[in-house]
Design a protein around this nucleic acid. Structure first.
Lengths: 140, 140
DNA sequence: CCAATAGATGAGAAGCTTTTGCATTCAATC
DNA sequence: GATTGAATGCAAAAGCTTCTCATCTATTGG
């Protein structure tokens, strides 16, 4: 369970860390901001400070448990690292996020980095667009 | 010259706007932050406030004169829009930025958006890595 | 060329997200 | 159960960016 993941990360098993990890695992949204997590904790009657949420998420990121992404609106979102890399497509109207992986793109990136003399550590491909979802149309 | 570009954008031709546009056109770095612009203005004995720099850059962005990018460190950088789209590869050690365009990637993105039901408005592909430049190695 | 006016500016305050300092509390260890 | 270094909560602080508002200016028409 969560305890072990936390322990493996070299962190003490504390209530905030367990709760936050549970939250991430059970959350409907895969991409949540620190603020989102904080609000969910409040809603679950957990008395955990926002500073702790940031600290814990950062530690989780360092431990490779979660990934941090910077979308356009300025603040960061976190998602559980399920091990497999993927990119994102974000709806500019409703904020919906979908994930995808494209081997061709991955290969081309590698090729480009080679040509330009870079050793890739990571990359972030985000496509912004308008999704053609019914619900979205109503909002836009 | 710059005056006309500014006028075409529907903006009054004022000293701050002309100076900022000149700066962007003559700058060695293609990617500058608002703070960078502000410092360059100070260095050129221009008495222009930071708020104005932000306002002007935002207006230039709306007018399509510059593009705004969000790299990982939180703050935004602006670059003159030379009309042709390109992506970025950023060195995590020395901060160097190179640009590239890859038609295959562009096509695949379009295909992915189609499949997922999105109408692309824009995208941001940033590869992070370590460049193999001599100068960079010394720093890292 | 001057007057009128809508828009632009500068300075500082305010807003947001994120980080930090510090006294208190707690998990791990013996 | 006592010890101890790590973790927490709160409030304060720190970036970056936006806003407020009084002052100033580019544009326009007379």
């Amino acid at each position: 369970m969560e305890d072990q993941e936390i322990r493996n990360a070299g962190l003490k098993v504390t209530a905030p860390r367990v709760k936050i990890l549970e939250l991430l695992e059970n959350s409907q949204q895969r991409h949540v901001s620190a603020e989102d997590v904080y609000r969910m904790l409040l809603a679950a009657d957990q008395d955990i400070g926002l500073a702790t949420v940031y600290r814990v998420l950062t530690q989780f990121e360092e431990a490779g448990l979660v990934e941090k992404h910077h979308f356009e609106d300025g603040h960061s979102v976190f998602e559980l690292d399920k091990g497999k890399h993927h990119d994102h497509i974000v709806c500019v109207t409703c904020g919906r996020v979908k994930e995808f992986v494209d081997e061709t793109i991955e290969e081309r990136q590698q090729k480009i980095a080679d040509e330009l003399g870079f050793q890739i550590s990571e990359h972030d491909l985000v496509i912004y667009g308008k999704c053609l979802d019914d619900e979205c149309d109503r909002k836009g």
